[in-house]
Amino acid sequence: MSLATEFNKGVIRDNPLFRLGLGFCPALAITTSIENGLGMGAAVTGVLVASNVAISAMRNIIPDNVRIPTYIVIIATFVTMVDQLMHAFTPALYASLGIFIPLIVVNCIILGRAEAFANKNTIVPSIFDGLGMGAGFTLALVLVCTFREVLGAGTFLGMPVIPGDTPVLLMILPPGAFITLGCLLGALNKFQKKTA
């Protein structure tokens, strides 16, 4: 498979959030503004690429029966690095993502790619796999964020887009997250059936 295919599969065909159903927790929790979505997407992509590289490089050294604990420690190390970097350079974003940055450790996308891809492939395809999955996840997050921010706060990336001052507050509150993601998944199912 070419490198472009490795990248593309994560964006559309095997989109981690919409197609594989992984990473629901952050997709529901932090998608109140597009900025949060981009920040979270970037953090997850960073950890994903780094852990894919490390795991792929060490795939012949790690004994098979302790591989899951090893992966978790590797992932936790990179999450800690991202956590410290964001704390230092983007304090506002760090505050609004809060607890969900350390929780990237238990994001199933990262462990899933380690197990399904990085431990069977060489380093370069693993980088592209990580980039593609990360891009697909970011895209999905931004899509959910767009609906919630535009409808719930009446803004797009902070700029007011809906005139008047009564946006649908519910969309920013927790129920809005469930409704948006549920309806998006339903709409994608419908769309896919039509094209198939």
């Binding site: 159903g21 519910l170 509150l173 927790p174 129920p175 809005g176 997250a177 469930f178 409704i179 993601l181 549920g182 309806c183 998944l185 339903g186 709409a187 199912n189 419908k190 059936k193």
Partner: peptide, 23 residues
């Protein structure tokens, strides 16, 4: 349930209504 909403989508909408009740 409509065909395309079966499974996870309808579960999420259900969760939305529960979450609204908990509000």
């Amino acid at each position: 349930v409509p065909e395309s909403m079966k499974g996870t989508p309808i579960a999420l909408v259900t969760a939305a209504l529960m979450s609204m009740a908990f509000l």
